[in-house]
Amino acid sequence: MIRGESLSKTFGDIQAVKPLDIHIREHGITAIMGGSGSGKTTLLRLLSGLEKPSSGHVWFASEDLGRIPERRLFKLREQMGMVFQYSALLNSLDVYGNVAFPLHEHTNLDEEIIRRIVMMKLEQVGLRGFEHLMPSELSGGMAKRVAFARAMAMDPRVVFFDEPTSGLDPISAGVITSLIHDTVRKAHMTAVVVTHDVHAGLSIADHVILMWQGAIIASGSPDDIRASEDERVRQFIEGRPDGPIPFSRSTRPYLDDLLGTQP
């Protein structure tokens, strides 16, 4: 479905994603997990074509997302949906306008049909009746669900989720997690979920990719990951403060600075 080949991205001097190969399988949920700054969000932006790779290729439906002209990219985007970390609802439009936005932009459907589609999508996320609220009037969890409905409006083949549960209370997070699971299963979609929520990631994914410092350190089924012997993987999924992934980010040991010794 989506394939990254020796894909990398650098911002200035920082290598956010080191050259890596990645394959997102069709019909299923791939979870990309890792700590903050592990490069997982950058990888998601590369796979969705939002960011151009510094090197390598992203193949989507046998087109190289980093190199095709904008018009072709926009054509492919009609098969993609994305739920952003902060929902990214257009705050000049109400809930209805947001969910209807892709349909208004890319179809010539009658307003009556668009209305039915929007109501269906809102019903799916349990927000029918809220269509006249503005984004500023929504709670974080509701905004996430509207963003979800908007991403699904065009019935895309692939949906990208950037930290779908971060900043939500456990119930809202659970609602979103099960929405992703159920919708993707029922509609035979492909989903890429970036998350640091170990529980959510392992429970809904068919395939898990674990990242650390811009590189993939493990990949496989959730059971493979749970059974992994790798110390870094164990530390991450068990959430231990001590281990090979250091707590301190200082470049020099503080003791050396205190004593004025050269290491």
Partner: peptide, 14 residues
């Protein structure tokens, strides 16, 4: 800040 520009991009609007 709120990624609305990215969201437009993802919805194939320049």
């Amino acid at each position: 800040v709120t990624e609305q520009l990215d969201a437009l991009q993802m919805m194939a609007v320049n």
